[in-house]
Simulated assay, not measured.
Amino acid sequence: MTSPSWLTVTQGTAPLLVSIPHTGIDLAGLDSRLISTWLGRRDADWWIDKLYDFAESLGATVVHTAISRTVIDVNRDPSGVSLYPGQTMTGLCPTETFDGDPLYRKGEEPGPSEIDERREKFFVPYHAALQAEIDRLRALHGKIVVYDCHSIRSVLPRLFEGKLPVFNLGTNDGKSADPTLQEKVTQSLAETGESYVVNGRFKGGWITRHFGQPQAGVHALQMELSNRGYLREPEGKGEPDNWPVPYDAEFAAPIRVTLKKILETAIVWAER
């Protein structure tokens, strides 16, 4: 079956599936309904696809959507139920940014039927691709690791207090991955000397929680990086003249060493 143009699946044979759900900036024709296209793209996980572009060389399978999270967030519960009850989060089809700025011109917000259409058009194919690759890799290996890649601004008062650690590892409070795998990845984080937390503010989104089934041989990790770990992140929430900042390979090189080590660790763990 041919994948839609916005969905990229690169198949590998290692026991590792890398999911990249939030780097997309394709607004799927919503441009005129949004207050601005820049605002519609501000909360993308900027340059995460570049940051992890070594994954294929490790033999990992990579699934990537080009559709913006403003159109639909493929890492939310498709029913619309909050993954973090009591905490501020954007929805399946967000109508405001992380900062609370409205995304749509008045009266242009999506209604229930449009949300259903977007779910069928964009959410379902992405998750079907993940499931198909999980099934393919499980046929090759006794256990596999699903690694979900994310990033976010270091300071977002509406979503969390203070400054987020550089590395935020989530395993749904230990439910989505074997504790030994979590321990090995945590050790790699500790060795960096940078700030990190395990199952803190970001415990894992829908991808981690839905696909992480250790009893079935599928172990899922979410890595949420603070932007300052790999970008020259500006102060404040970012404005059109300074956000996003260009990707700087030299600046990002140190964190790439750690991320590569983490993916290699996951592969070795799964193979053993």
Rank of each mutant, 00 (worst) to 15 (best):
Met1Gly: 10
Pro4Gly: 11
Ser5Phe: 09
Trp6Gly: 02
Leu7Gln: 03
Thr8Ile: 10
Thr8Trp: 03
Val9Gly: 01
Thr10Val: 11
Thr13Lys: 13
Thr13Met: 03
Ala14Ser: 15
Leu16Asp: 03
Val18Ile: 14
Val18Met: 10
Val18Trp: 03
Val18Tyr: 02
Ser19Gly: 07
Ile20Leu: 14
His22Cys: 03
His22Leu: 07
Thr23Trp: 11
Gly24Cys: 11
Ile25Glu: 12
Asp26Trp: 09
Ser36Glu: 05
Thr37Ala: 12
Leu39Cys: 10
Asp43Ile: 00
Asp43Leu: 04
Trp46Ser: 09
Asp49Arg: 12
Tyr52Glu: 08
Phe54Tyr: 15
Glu56Asn: 07
Leu58Ala: 06
Thr61Gly: 05
Val63Phe: 03
Thr65Cys: 09
Ala66Gly: 13
Ser68Gly: 12
Arg69Gln: 12
Arg69His: 11
Thr70Trp: 05
Asp77Tyr: 00
Gly80Ser: 00
Leu83Ile: 11
Leu92Phe: 03
Leu92Asn: 03
Pro94Val: 02
Thr95Tyr: 00
Gly100Trp: 06
Asp101Ile: 09
Asp101Trp: 05
Leu103Met: 04
Tyr104Arg: 06
Lys106Met: 09
Pro110Arg: 10
Pro110Asp: 10
Pro110Ser: 09
Gly111Glu: 13
Glu117Phe: 08
Glu117Gln: 13
Lys121Thr: 15
Phe123Asn: 00
Ala128Ser: 15
Val145Thr: 15
Cys149Val: 15
Cys149Arg: 06
Ser151His: 06
Arg153Asp: 11
Leu156Asp: 06
Arg158Val: 08
Leu159Val: 11
Lys163Gly: 02
Leu164Arg: 14
Pro165Lys: 10
Pro165Gln: 08
Val166Ala: 10
Phe167Leu: 15
Leu169Ala: 02
Gly170Cys: 03
Thr171Trp: 12
Asp178Lys: 02
Pro179Asp: 12
Glu183Gly: 07
Thr186Cys: 10
Gln187Thr: 14
Ala190Ile: 14
Ala190Ser: 13
Glu191Arg: 14
Glu194Tyr: 12
Tyr196Asp: 05
Tyr196Asn: 08
Val197Ile: 12
Val198Cys: 13
Gly204Tyr: 07
Gly205Val: 08
Trp206Glu: 13
Ile207Leu: 12
Arg209Trp: 05
Gln215Tyr: 04
Gln215Val: 13
Asn227Gln: 15
Tyr230Ser: 08
Glu235Tyr: 02
Glu235Leu: 11
Glu235Phe: 07
Glu235Asn: 05
Gly236Cys: 03
Gly236Tyr: 01
Pro240Asn: 13
Pro246Val: 06
Asp248Tyr: 07
Phe251Asn: 07
Phe251Asp: 02
Lys261Asn: 14
Glu264Asp: 11
Glu264Ser: 14
Ala270Gly: 08
Arg272Asp: 13
